[in-house]
C-alpha cells in the first residue's frame, strides 16, 4: 500500500458458499482463503509454485494458490480441502490417506488431497505412474511418497467401485 491502490470488488464461490469481497489487486488467492475467509487448511510452503501445499481447485482445475491473484478468481468457483468432506463424512481420499499412513506432519496433505482429487475426478482409472505424475508438483518431506501413491490408488479403486 505504498500508494493508495483502490480495492477491487470480487465475488467468489468457495466450497459452495458465495462471498463478495473487496481485495487489494496484489492479494494472492491463498491470502484470500487463509486471511480473508479463515480457511487455514490451505498452506503456504515455498512461495514459488514449487511445493503445492497451497493447491486448490479453481473452476475445477488445480492451481497453486500462492501464485494466483485473488482478482483472477473473480466469478470463480473454488474448492479447498475444507470442502472435501460432505456433512462431516470424509471423502474416500481422506479416509484412504489415513488408512495408508499417507501423512505424517500433515502440512502437505491438503495440497496433496486437492491434486489427487483433481486427478481422480478426470478418471478414477489410474496407474501408479499416472498418480506419480499427478502429484509431481506436490512436495512431501515426511512420507517418501509411496504411501501417498497407495492411498490415492485405494481411493481410486473405491471410487470406481461406487
Amino acid at each position: 500500500m505504498r500508494d493508495q491502490i483502490p480495492l477491487v470488488p470480487i465475488e467468489v464461490k468457495v466450497n459452495g458458499k458465495s462471498h463478495k469481497l473487496e481485495v487489494e489487486p496484489r492479494m494472492l488467492l491463498v491470502e484470500l482463503l487463509r486471511d480473508g475467509l479463515g480457511l487455514t487448511g490451505t498452506h503456504i510452503g515455498c512461495d514459488t509454485t514449487y511445493c503445492g501445499a497451497c493447491t486448490v481447485l479453481l473452476n475445477g482445475n488445480p492451481v497453486k494458490s500462492c501464485t494466483v491473484f485473488a482478482v483472477q478468481a473473480d466469478q470463480g468457483e473454488i474448492m479447498t480441502v475444507e470442502g472435501l468432506a460432505k456433512d462431516g463424512q470424509l471423502h474416500p481420499l481422506q479416509s484412504a490417506f489415513s488408512e495408508q499412513h499417507a501423512l505424517q506432519c500433515g502440512y502437505c496433505t491438503p495440497g496433496m488431497l486437492m491434486s489427487s482429487y483433481s486427478l481422480l475426478s478426470k478418471s478414477p482409472s489410474v496407474t501408479d505412474k499416472d498418480i506419480v505424475k499427478g502429484i509431481a508438483g506436490n512436495v512431501c518431506r515426511c512420507t517418501g511418497y509411496q504411501n501417498i501413491v497407495k492411498a490415492i490408488q485405494l481411493a481410486a479403486q473405491q471410487t470406481k467401485g461406487r
Binding site: 480441502v81 475444507e82 490417506f97 501423512l103 500433515g106
Partner: peptide, 14 residues
Amino acid sequence: DDRLIRGHGKFVDD
C-alpha cells in the same frame, strides 16, 4: 489424522 486430513490442523501461521 482426522484433523489434518480435514484441513483442521492448527499450525502457527493459522
